[in-house]
């Protein structure tokens, strides 16, 4: 077994060295393929970030009747927070609401004058509720409507925001579906490309494979060196891709952060380096070896 492996490695490495042009072409195509797979992995993270960002901009607000004591509102906040679908509940007091509004419309003379004319604080205390999933808002609004404290509630603005939330929900769903389909389609194209290149490499050795069969060489002894060639090419391609992505993201990452604040793609890459290496080397080794084994099959029928 060890001798056979040693011999397969010897011939595989020798073939690679002697057909260096073909080997470079194979490694190049494998680098492209693994890069595309890595890019899709990072793209999926970017999409996840963008959809989360979108979802985080959505919330519903529960406004309480004027005069409802703050302690009671805080008790209600605690009970809502305990619901499993709730991500975050923020309490906004009457005063905070007034301040926020004034701050937002600081430059608008008509609005500030109108506020002054009213003379009192017209805003209501509220709870801003965020769920983990945008599709839960409807359920949360209904359970508040059915709750014991509903008599203290002036209004829930879910009904006004409902069309926007539902539209956003459908956009997020569509994005996720499109991303999954794109990843699957591009991965298939990439794998096909790599397979085709390895098939071409093996096709150039078609005659040699047939000769080996004619002189009584067993199928596994013929396959061995090609398998090793495929594994070496895949490993080399994975190594080049890791280095390429590592260097690019190290230098480009901060610039990407400026474009999309909060998205630390380089940090994501380095934090998940074990998974990235598994994907890249796994893709390289599997593509190299499986493509070699499949491509060689038809020439072993002599």
């Amino acid at each position: 077994m060890t001798t056979s492996l040693k011999r397969a490695f010897h011939w595989g490495w020798l073939n690679l060295k002697r057909q260096v042009g073909m080997a470079i072409a194979t490694v190049f195509v494998l680098v492209l393929t693994i890069s595309l797979i890595t890019f899709l992995f990072l793209f999926q993270e970017t999409t996840r970030f963008l959809t989360t960002e979108l979802q985080e901009r959505v919330d519903i607000a529960v406004y309480f009747k004027d005069g409802t004591p703050e302690t009671e509102i805080l008790d209600i906040k605690n009970s809502i927070t305990k619901m499993p679908e709730i991500k975050k509940v923020d309490f906004v007091s009457k005063e905070d609401a007034y301040l926020k509004f004034s701050e937002r419309h600081k430059g608008n003379k008509a609005i500030t004058e109108s506020l002054e004319e009213i003379g009192t604080n017209p805003f209501l205390a509220s709870l801003n509720i965020q769920t983990f999933d945008a599709s839960s808002y409807s359920r949360v609004a209904s359970s508040i409507q059915r709750s014991a404290f509903y008599n203290l509630v002036e209004k829930i603005d879910f009904l006004q925001r409902k069309p926007v939330i539902e539209r956003l929900n459908s956009i997020v769903l569509s994005i996720n579906t499109i991303v999954i389909i794109t990843i699957m389609a591009l991965s298939a194209v990439a794998v096909g490309l790599a397979f085709n290149q390895i098939r071409n490499t093996i096709y150039s050795s078609k005659e040699e494979i047939e000769i080996m069969r004619l002189v009584g060489v067993s199928n596994w002894f013929i396959r061995g060196p090609f398998l090793i060639q495929g594994i070496i090419s895949g490993g080399l391609a994975a190594f080049i891709t890791v280095a390429m992505f590592g260097v690019t993201l190290y230098f480009m990452g901060p610039k990407l952060n400026v474009l999309l604040p909060g998205l630390n793609i380089h940090q994501f890459f380095f934090n998940n380096i074990a998974l990235v290496l598994l994907i890249q080397f796994g893709a390289g080794f599997l593509l190299g070896s499986i493509s070699s084994l499949i491509s060689i099959r038809s020439y072993l029928k002599v």
Binding site: R213, V215, G216, S218, L300, K301
Partner: peptide
């Protein structure tokens, strides 16, 4: 086919 090498 897999036994042909032995003959050859």
């Amino acid at each position: 086919s897999s036994h042909l090498p032995l003959l050859r």
